[in-house]
């Protein structure tokens, strides 16, 4: 590998000096493995998700990024035959075996999906506060306040303020995805998981979501799965690189700050991937 070539293609990692240091840990993964009907989909995942930072999970298709992400708020619970081994700690409490109900966990660890999925029968307003309603909040003043603040945080308030009662499906794809982010934010979660949140969006909508994620760091910890190398470089502070092993199970190859992963990784496979040699 000649230095000249590397310098030319080196991914530009945006300066993250504003992000807080990796001092406080939001979630800890200890030797996490997920299997379906005894077949391991992803394993050997041990890393810490630092508070108020953006952690990206990158790797080629089939490396288990999404599977790992979904383990973080127990979305595999309903999949028959799914088993999560190892430990995942939220604030030091094991989310699978600890003293934490699955519904409480999910109110503390929110999720945004690959395709915008606002509830089609609900209005923009109802979508934004749907999580609160599901959890029994009825007081109108609280709901109104939560709707406004979450929509503001998702940079959506100004464009929807006058049409809160309109069906959410009238929004554009990018707006719908921001509504889904608002919906997650309304629960005031500690962590938001994002599963390729911009893969179904156009470049401008993508940019707005990325800006949003960066600003959200102030209040939440973000974990994002992305296929897009530039996106990972632009927005994430820390980065986990996963790869499919010999037996078709994904495994963690390397975890470090994004800067390190993209510019100076330890494992040669990480370098190959971030340079676009495969995947």
């Amino acid at each position: 590998m000649d230095q000249e070539f590397m310098a030319k293609v080196k991914m530009e990692v945006v300066d993250k000096s504003t992000a807080p240091a990796r001092s406080v840990i939001a979630m800890q993964l200890k030797d996490v493995a997920v299997s379906f009907h005894g077949r391991t989909a992803v394993r050997d995942c041990t890393f810490d998700i630092a508070k108020n930072r953006v952690t990206s999970l990158i790797g080629p298709s089939g490396s288990g990024k999404t599977t790992l992400l979904r383990a973080l708020n127990r979305l595999h619970d309903l999949t028959p035959g799914a088993k999560v081994a190892g430990q995942i700690l939220l604030d030091g409490v094991d989310i699978y075996r600890g003293d934490l109900t699955v519904t409480e966990l999910r109110t503390r660890v929110g999720m945004v999906f690959q395709r915008p999925n606002p509830f089609p029968t609900m209005s923009i307003y109802d979508n934004a506060i749907s999580g609160l309603r599901f959890n029994g909040v009825k007081k109108k003043s609280i709901l109104d306040e939560a709707a406004e603040s979450s929509l503001r945080s998702a940079a959506l308030w100004d464009s929807v303020e006058s049409r809160l009662k309109v069906a959410a499906s009238n929004l554009s794809g990018g707006e719908q995805q921001r509504l889904c982010i608002a919906r997650a934010l309304a629960m005031d979660p500690e962590v938001i998981l994002m599963d390729e949140p911009t893969s179904a969006l156009d470049p401008i909508a993508t940019l707005r979501i990325e800006e949003l994620m960066t600003s959200l760091k102030q209040r939440v910890t973000v974990v994002i799965v992305t296929h897009n190398m530039q996106q990972a470089a632009r927005i994430s502070d820390d980065c986990a690189f996963l790869l499919m092993g010999e037996d078709r199970a994904g495994e963690l190859i390397e975890f470090d700050t994004t800067e390190k992963i993209f510019n100076n990784p330890i494992d040669p496979r990480t370098l190959d991937y971030t340079l676009g040699r495969f995947g």
Partner: peptide
């Protein structure tokens, strides 16, 4: 849609 609901703690 089901997953979105579950992920909100419903």
């Amino acid at each position: 849609l089901r997953e979105a609901g579950l992920a909100l703690g419903a």
